[in-house]
Every structure is written in C-alpha cells, then in structure tokens.
C-alpha cells in the first residue's frame, strides 16, 4: 500500500491511542494504522501520552480527571488536530479543553507546573470525523476489496452518539452507515444500535451486563446481520466477552472494516485476537466477489 499512489497529499494528525487500543484492542490500533496509511493520513502518536482519566478518575476526583486529560493536551502540538479513536477518550479530552477555556487560572497553574503550553484551542476529533471531512474520496480511490454483501449493524454504543454536554460538537449518527455503504456493505439499522454495552459494569457486575449484551447480539441476529461494527474498543470487548447466548456474531472494529476494504492482507493477525471468530465474513466476501 503505497502512501502516495492515489495522488492525495499526505496529512499529519496527532494521535491519542488510549489504554484500550494500546493493549486489549491492539487489533483496532493495527488496522487503524493500516487504513490511515493507505489513505495518506499520518497518525503521529502523542509522545509519552497517559490515560485520559477514564470514568474512574471522573468519578473520584475532578481535578485528577482534568489534570490527566490536560497533560495529554499539553503534549499535542498546536499545528495539527488531535485524533482519538476511543469515544470516551475523545469525550474526556474535549471536556478538559472546554473546562480549561473557562478556567484560565487552572490552565496557567498546570502550564507552569509542566513548563509547556496546553493546547486548549486546537481541534480534538474522532477518526470518523477525519474520514468524513477529508477521507471519503481517498477511501474510494484506495478501495481494493468490495464489501458487497456484508450485512452489518452499525453499533454506535452510547458515547459517540451525542453526550449532551458536548451537543454543540459534531456527532456521528448515520456516518458509519454512509461510509461503509459507500464500500458496498449493507447497513442493518433495525437492531439495538445505541444500547449501552455496560461499560465498567462488565468488570464489576457481569450478571447485570450479560442479559443486555445478549439482547444486543440477538437483535442483530434477528435482523439478519453478518456482524456488528463498532468504533469503540470497550464496546467491542464487552459485546464479545459478555455474550452467553447461542448466537455467535462477530463484532468488528470500524477500523478493521476499513482496512479490509483498503486491501490489508494481514487481517489474520488481528482476527486471531477476536473471541468470536470473524473469518466467516471473509469467506462470505470472497464468495460474493
């Protein structure tokens, strides 16, 4: 996959992987890197980034939560947008920006402590937004495999779909369908697309989460889907580890679907990390082609 083969200029973005993509969901990270590269997007990892704070810091201490997110902002060069893939990380990074814009004293105090400016004006966006704004042509030009015949449920989960405090920001309802449909896939939207995956309750109280996850998976099966596609690594994990029903439907990362369409050939490397084997999807795509 040659970076320049489609004649589009390369674009640089700072990239915040977050804890899930760096570990549990390494397959999402690997496929994202491939997809981005194939479209001429350079995702430059934020040097020495730390956890965004997550719901745990948010729950226990506001200053800690703000500080953790703010440190990441202080590592982001001002001349390019900061891109995240995890909707929760995105949410906390953006919330911190808003908060620091309104609290110049806190901002100055942190800046003095770290001896560097905090990027409070720069754009913090989800990779989906990079795609929608700059990538649709690149995606078409770079597509090597058709996703024709792939029936997928676009599973947004909760956070990418409009947290009210950030409602003036763009949100992504419908975009996953548009993007993947342009590659030939067939969106199935009469399933539980926005139902929360259970978040941390999956770790603390699995018995609460299991029936809900089963409902989500069953709704996808009843609608005749081959797979669910999600842009959130935590959703992907919860949907895989908490399902107990008979239905086995693979849950793909959004980035994996993109990388597949863009011709990545090392998908076996990511697929072995799935708990529900996604290989039947490839068989189906090959048969359809």
């Amino acid at each position: 996959m040659n970076k320049r083969q489609n004649g589009y200029p390369e674009m640089d973005f700072s990239y915040f992987p977050g804890c899930s993509l760096a570990t549990t969901a390494a397959e999402s990270n690997q496929s994202l890197m491939q997809a981005a590269q194939a479209m001429g997007f350079n995702l430059l990892e934020l040097p020495d980034w730390n956890c965004c704070g997550s719901s745990s810091a948010q729950t226990m201490c506001r200053n800690l939560s703000l500080g953790m997110a703010a440190r990441n902002l202080s590592l982001a060069p001002p001349d390019r947008p900061l891109v995240a893939m995890c909707p929760r990380c995105l949410h906390y990074l953006r919330s911190a920006q808003k908060c620091l814009q309104q609290a110049p004293l806190t901002r100055r105090e942190l800046e003095e402590r770290w001896g560097r400016p905090i990027n409070v004006e720069g754009e913090v966006i989800h990779f989906m937004e990079v795609l929608v704004r700059h990538g649709l042509d690149r995606l078409q030009a770079g597509a090597r495999r058709s996703l024709k015949g792939l029936r997928f449920v676009p599973y947004y989960g909760c956070t990418l779909f409009r947290p009210p405090r950030l409602k003036n920001e763009s949100y992504f309802e419908g975009e996953m369908e548009n993007i993947l449909a342009s590659l030939g896939a067939e969106p199935i939207t009469h399933a539980l697309m926005y139902r929360c995956c259970g978040s941390f309750l999956s770790a603390t109280d699995p018995e609460i989460v299991t029936p809900l996850v089963n409902e989500i998976i069953d709704s996808a099966a009843a609608a005749g889907a081959d797979c669910l596609v999600t842009a959130c690594a935590m959703c992907q994990l919860n949907l895989e580890i908490r399902r107990t029903g008979k239905t086995r439907i693979p849950v793909l990362h959004f980035s994996e679907t993109l990388a597949l369409a863009l011709g990545a050939d090392d998908y076996e490397k990511w697929f072995v990390r799935h708990i529900v084997d996604p290989r039947p999807i490839i068989t189906k795509l090959v048969q359809a082609a």
């Binding site: 948010q58 909760c158 956070t159 779909f161 947290p163 009210p164 929360c196 978040s199 309750l201 109280d205």
Partner: peptide, 11 residues
C-alpha cells in the same frame, strides 16, 4: 453507582 453515564436518559 450503577449509572455508567451512557446519557440515554439525558437524550
């Protein structure tokens, strides 16, 4: 504590 902040209620 059970609330995970999914914002379903808010929306």
């Amino acid at each position: 504590w059970v609330c995970v902040g999914c914002h379903t209620c808010s929306s």
